[in-house]
């Protein structure tokens, strides 16, 4: 049979072919899970986002470190308050006499020692 004759052969309808292709596609194995190590060109946005985040963290650490070294107005204020508070005599702040405070302290200490002694000897 001359080969040119067969060019007029019937073919199945398009919907038959479509059904066969759909069946072939459905029978394919499920696509493999996407690996974590993406190809560079596909992962560029991901890499860029992580790089930006890392850079921001680094800059923040450097900034905090430098700030600690140089001091900070709020810290200076706190230190000033503490030193000022330490410089203020307790007697003045509470309105009591230094001697009274000392006496009360001694009597408190003695009372505690006596109590401790009593329990220790029971």
């Amino acid at each position: 049979m001359p080969p040119e004759l067969t060019t007029h052969q019937d073919r199945p309808a398009e919907h038959v072919r479509a059904a066969i292709y759909a069946a072939a596609r459905a029978a394919l194995p499920a696509p493999h899970r996407q690996p974590v190590w993406l190809p560079a060109w596909r992962a560029m946005p991901t890499y860029a986002a992580w790089s930006a985040l890392a850079a921001a963290l680094f800059l923040m650490c450097v900034h905090l470190h430098l700030r600690d070294q140089a001091g900070y107005p709020a810290d200076s204020l706190a230190l000033a308050l503490v030193s000022e508070w330490q410089d203020v005599p307790l007697a003045e702040e509470c309105g009591v006499d230094d001697d009274d405070l000392e006496r009360q302290s001694v009597s408190t200490m003695l009372a505690w020692m006596e109590t401790d002694l009593v329990y220790d000897t029971l």
Partner: peptide, 26 residues
């Protein structure tokens, strides 16, 4: 190749025998 997921390979296979099989059946 088709069993590894290539629909192009299936297309080649199908196209190679489409007319012959259909002619035989018809």
């Amino acid at each position: 190749e088709y069993l590894h997921g290539s629909m192009s390979a299936f297309h080649r296979l199908y196209a190679r025998y489409e007319r012959a099989v259909f002619f035989y059946i018809k």
